[in-house]
Write a protein that binds this DNA or RNA. Structure first.
Lengths: 212, 212
DNA sequence: TGAAAGAAAGTAATCAATCGCTTTATTTTG
DNA sequence: CAAAATAAAGCGATTGATTACTTTCTTTCA
């Protein structure tokens, strides 16, 4: 008789470990799959669990999406805001935020799909609420940096800060969508500085107000 | 016995009529529903057909998506390009395109969801191809307008046209996403001019190159 | 009158969630 | 400290609901 082929000990893990592994698996899977087509079976398989076992750690699928949105929000906010605070000049902070954001996305290509996927849903699901609040928060940060820049005389005082903040976020989104069209999210980091450079013209000296 | 309750005359229509009615129904439904959750039953109901009858006019659901993508591409391209051609100054053409695009979206709030939904899908489905080609086409138009603007001395000759085109599309997308966050796509038209105004600083005289 | 348009019922597949039961980990207790 | 007891993590099968698409038969109209 052949070797008894040990009964493949199951590697039990705590719910917390499984939860974070599952969240990472979802983020990872979204790099190459539309979130709305992600099945619990596919996710469980990626984590190394049976489909049913997933529900030992999340009460339902919606709760999983909420956790994923929370993770993304936390990571993004933390990383982007922290690099901004390392610069004392507002314009440098804005540039650092921009590049950090693109870098974060380049390392986690599934994130745009996740966030856009949530925004697609109408209504006020908990996951969508998190994404919305994160974006609003982000926009506020940009606005206050622009205002700080005005005080520091590094930003045109006549700037329309609200509109500039929308354009700032749009620059990131345009870059990301451009990456989705081209198919290579990871190469975004190369062109990101060029995009920011041209955006930066918007908050520097106004063209129709030549220096007196 | 009660009245025979007349057999409710059916209004037969040609396949072509049903096809365009179906496409419009999809665009309309996407205004308040994630495209990936749209069922053939829901669409048929909107058109006023039984679910099965839909397949008399489209061989399958993918073919319907392809038709919808084609309709959107055609409408958008036609409207946006035609207003651009009504202006001889490149900068004015860019502004008119921008406002026409936002206006079109404001009148068809489902369109961003449709296009983003297609871009979410990985691979090279026919519908995604159409969306991708439309965006690429659009970007090319912006680039050539910027180059024309340089000849007309209405655009800074030192501009990074490729990057500016990405920023231009990003400005639109940022505005749209902003509308999705706020929930009211239709109010975009009010702030659109402000966004374009601040974007326009990017292609006007460069700040660090005071006119010689 | 026959071909196209439609309704209504049916089919096979998919998927989130549940269930019964087993295996591992932790806690209680003699 | 070991053995018993409880709790937690896991599997595999199943269930019920949903969905794209098909089939059968009926109605319209050119």
């Amino acid at each position: 008789m052949a070797t008894p082929l040990e009964p493949t000990k199951r590697a039990y893990q705590s719910t917390e470990q499984r939860q974070s592994a599952t969240i990472e698996a979802v983020v990872h899977l979204c790099a190459e799959q539309d979130p709305s087509t992600l099945t619990t079976a596919r996710i469980a398989n990626e984590v190394g669990l049976s489909q049913g076992a997933l529900f030992k750690h999340f009460p339902n699928k919606n709760s999983l999406w909420k956790s994923v949105a929370g993770w993304v929000s936390e990571q993004l906010t933390q990383r982007v805001f922290s690099v901004a605070d390392q610069h004392k000049h507002a314009d440098q902070a804005l540039e650092a935020m921009f590049l950090a954001h693109i870098g974060f996305i380049a390392r986690h290509p599934g994130i745009p799909r996740l966030m856009l996927g949530e925004l697609q849903k109408p209504g006020n699901g908990p996951a969508k609420r998190i994404v919305r609040e994160t974006l609003t928060n982000y926009r506020q940060k940009v606005i206050s940096l622009l205002n700080l820049g005005i005080e520091q005389q590094r930003v045109t005082p006549t700037i329309d800060a609200d509109a500039a903040a929308v354009l700032y976020l749009g620059a990131i989104q345009g870059l990301v969508v451009q990456g989705m069209v081209g198919g290579d999210i990871r190469s975004l980091e190369k062109i990101a500085p060029r995009i920011f450079r041209i955006f930066s013209a918007c908050f520097q000296e106004a063209p129709d107000a030549p220096q007196a």
